[in-house]
Amino acid sequence: MRKFWHRGKFHLSALMMLVPLPFLPNYFSPKPIFAPPEIRRDVSAGPFPITLVTHDESPHRAGNGEWMKEYHVHLRPADIDKVRGVFLRVGKPRNLRAAGALSFGNPYEREAEVAVPAEPAGTEELWVTVEDWSGRIHQTSTPLAGFLGGKR
């Protein structure tokens, strides 16, 4: 019986090494397994076409009490080296210092967390400000209604 148990432990440990194999394709896929649906908007700020993407989830409350919404910013690969920064803000920015949340992360998929109103009226706009390396500023806006996602 003791010899059987030692042999069984060896085979059991080999079997435990094989159990995760069916889950590896999902682990290495670029998209999360249980991702909520996405909302996409295409805008153009000057010569730069931009795709804005957000999950269809309601905004979350940040530590300072503001409602925040995460947006992903996709630039064309040809424009990545030309763009210095992409800023997102609800409401028209007064100047570049108040341009909003600076997008960060991977140059191909940048992220920005934007403060959104607690009770949207439906007339708000999400402003996109793009600064290129020569210092020129390009702005555009898109209606926030239907692009906020989810329900609170």
Score class of each variant (00 low, 15 high):
1 M>F: 09
1 M>S: 13
2 R>N: 14
3 K>F: 10
6 H>D: 09
8 G>V: 08
10 F>I: 14
10 F>E: 14
11 H>S: 14
11 H>K: 15
11 H>R: 15
17 M>W: 08
18 L>S: 11
18 L>E: 05
21 L>V: 15
23 F>E: 04
23 F>P: 00
25 P>S: 01
26 N>E: 02
26 N>Y: 06
26 N>I: 08
27 Y>M: 04
27 Y>G: 01
29 S>Y: 12
30 P>Y: 09
31 K>Y: 13
32 P>S: 12
33 I>R: 07
33 I>L: 14
34 F>I: 09
35 A>H: 11
35 A>W: 06
36 P>C: 03
37 P>H: 09
37 P>K: 11
40 R>T: 11
40 R>F: 13
41 R>S: 14
42 D>F: 11
42 D>R: 13
43 V>F: 05
43 V>H: 03
44 S>D: 07
45 A>Y: 03
46 G>D: 04
47 P>A: 03
47 P>E: 00
48 F>N: 00
48 F>L: 00
48 F>Y: 10
49 P>M: 00
49 P>L: 01
51 T>Y: 05
52 L>N: 03
52 L>D: 00
56 D>M: 08
57 E>Y: 04
57 E>N: 08
57 E>L: 13
58 S>N: 10
58 S>C: 07
59 P>Y: 05
59 P>M: 03
59 P>N: 06
61 R>V: 15
61 R>I: 15
62 A>F: 05
64 N>P: 06
66 E>V: 07
66 E>H: 14
67 W>D: 08
68 M>H: 12
68 M>K: 14
71 Y>E: 01
72 H>G: 12
73 V>A: 03
74 H>N: 06
75 L>Q: 06
75 L>T: 01
78 A>Y: 07
82 K>M: 03
83 V>A: 00
83 V>D: 00
85 G>E: 10
86 V>S: 00
86 V>L: 02
88 L>Y: 02
88 L>T: 01
90 V>K: 01
91 G>K: 02
92 K>F: 02
92 K>I: 03
92 K>N: 04
93 P>E: 00
93 P>V: 01
94 R>G: 03
95 N>K: 06
95 N>S: 10
98 A>M: 07
99 A>D: 04
99 A>R: 08
100 G>V: 02
102 L>C: 10
102 L>V: 12
105 G>L: 05
105 G>V: 13
106 N>F: 08
107 P>K: 02
108 Y>M: 13
109 E>Y: 06
109 E>C: 13
109 E>M: 14
110 R>F: 03
110 R>P: 07
111 E>P: 09
111 E>G: 09
112 A>T: 06
112 A>C: 11
113 E>N: 12
113 E>C: 09
114 V>K: 02
114 V>W: 01
117 P>Y: 13
117 P>M: 10
119 E>R: 11
124 E>W: 09
124 E>F: 08
126 L>W: 09
127 W>Q: 05
127 W>G: 07
128 V>S: 07
129 T>V: 07
130 V>H: 05
130 V>E: 06
133 W>E: 14
134 S>L: 12
134 S>H: 10
135 G>D: 11
139 Q>N: 10
140 T>C: 04
141 S>M: 08
142 T>C: 13
142 T>I: 15
144 L>Y: 02
144 L>K: 04
144 L>W: 06
145 A>W: 06
145 A>Y: 09
145 A>D: 15
145 A>K: 15
149 G>N: 05
149 G>Y: 03
151 K>I: 15
152 R>P: 15
